[in-house]
C-alpha cells in the first residue's frame, strides 16, 4: 500500500542552505502576492484591463499566482535535492574515511 519503511533520519548538512533558499523564495512570492492585494485596494478598476485573449488582469494575475507557486516549489525542490545529495554524500564519505 505504498508504505515506505520507517527510517531514522541521519544528520542533514543542507539545513542552513535550504532555510536560506526557502526564505528568499518566500519573500519573492510574498512580494508578488502583496502586489496583487495592493492593486486591488488602490486601483480595483485596473483589474478589468484586458491582458491577452480577452482575459483581464484579475484572472491572469490570479491564475499566475497559482502557477508561480508551483514553479517556485519545483525550483526549490530541485535546489534542495541537489544540495542534499552533494553535502550529505560528501560528509558521509569524509566520516567514512
Amino acid at each position: 500500500m505504498l508504505h515506505e519503511p520507517a527510517v531514522v533520519e541521519g544528520k542533514d548538512y543542507a539545513i542552513g542552505y535550504k532555510m536560506r533558499v526557502g526564505v528568499i523564495m518566500f519573500v519573492l512570492y510574498a512580494l508578488v502576492y502583496a502586489g496583487f492585494v495592493i492593486i486591488n485596494v488602490s486601483n480595483p478598476v485596473k483589474m478589468e484591463s484586458i491582458v491577452f485573449s480577452g482575459l483581464n488582469l484579475a484572472v491572469v494575475y490570479g491564475f499566475g499566482l497559482i502557477i508561480f507557486a508551483l514553479i517556485l516549489a519545483l525550483i526549490y525542490n530541485g535546489l534542495c535535492t541537489k544540495k542534499e545529495a552533494l553535502l550529505n554524500k560528501k560528509t558521509e564519505s569524509k566520516e567514512g574515511r
Partner: peptide, 19 residues
C-alpha cells in the same frame, strides 16, 4: 480570492514550515 489565498498559504508551508 479564497482560492488564491488558500493556495498561496502553501508557499509559507513549503518554504518555511514543512521540514
Amino acid at each position: 480570492l479564497y482560492s488564491i489565498g488558500y493556495l498561496a498559504g502553501w508557499i509559507v508551508a513549503l518554504f518555511v514550515i514543512a521540514e
